[in-house]
Design a binder for these strands. Structure first.
Lengths: 150, 150
DNA sequence: CTGCGTGCAAATGCTTTGCATATGT
DNA sequence: ACATATGCAAAGCATTTGCACGCAG
């Protein structure tokens, strides 16, 4: 029942919709769709309008309370933000390094949806070619343009 | 210019829309949206209706010629299928193993969109807990239900 | 009491579908 | 000739928005 305190700490006005949605997400082991949240609210005596659900999730997202994943076609899942981390991407050609926010959250949800597996750890090593190097290659490739489907 | 042969080989009726879309995808270094394809077709003298684009992509997808990724909000990208591989998911508890189709394609597109990096290689190690084990845990956790936010 | 949150209904954006016509084999 | 592909316009679905009202601070 400390949802209101949590909201207040985040300078978010406390309303029944926000309390309910925050509580629901914190209790739920899975990420939920907006529709899920809407339906569950109707199940209990708290009727929250679908647009309110979206607006609340948007507020939470902007306050880094909730994160949103795209799953399959046009469905999105929402869950409370867990720890965040990044990965280093190192260009194989020029060795430049850049950071990307870990894309695995997306994968975790995807895999969970497909297989029921709850991913707890991952190790991700990415190698690639940065945009500048790609362009250089593209130019020098204008000569030997017979590497289709290689 | 061998698009028609390719289509015929796949038992797909050859039409200008299909040839055009197949060629466009095979020439494009990036995955494209349906809209992209539509717009480019208008640029040249080949007018292809947007619904035809979608229908064609659907046919290609069903024939494993094209794959579809979800990127960001409600946008999807399409590209020719490249090699496919899987990863092993091993449950940390019961050691059961299952295969998942490599989810990195999705990531590759995402990263490319965000950073311009073209990923060429990845190493992905996943650890997790399978659904059965999750359930067992859930049950035995009913006792010590004070691990919120841990 | 004042502004922000909410419900409602209408609008949006991407995608899909029904139907009549055009095209490939 | 016949089945399938296409264009067009209308429907669908998840999400967003405008507006009037209601509630939190």
């Amino acid at each position: 029942m400390e949802a209101d305190i949590f909201l207040r700490e985040n300078n978010i006005k406390v309303t029944k919709a926000r309390i309910y949605i925050y509580m629901l997400l914190s209790k739920s082991p899975n990420a939920l769709t907006a529709e899920d949240i809407y339906n569950r609210s109707r199940g209990e005596n708290i009727d929250i309008n679908l647009s309110t659900v979206y607006r609340t999730l948007e507020v939470f997202e902007k306050n880094n309370i909730v994160e949103k994943f795209n799953i399959g076609e046009n469905s999105h899942l929402y869950s409370l933000v867990k720890e965040k981390h990044s990965h280093i991407l190192k260009c194989s050609l020029c060795n430049k390094e850049i950071k990307v926010p870990c894309p695995m959250k997306q994968i975790e949800e995807l895999v969970k949806n497909q297989t029921g597996f709850t991913l707890t750890e991952h190790k991700l090593v990415l190698k690639g070619i940065c945009s500048e190097c790609s362009e250089k290659i593209a130019k020098s490739n204008k000569n030997d343009k017979d590497n289709k489907n290689c």
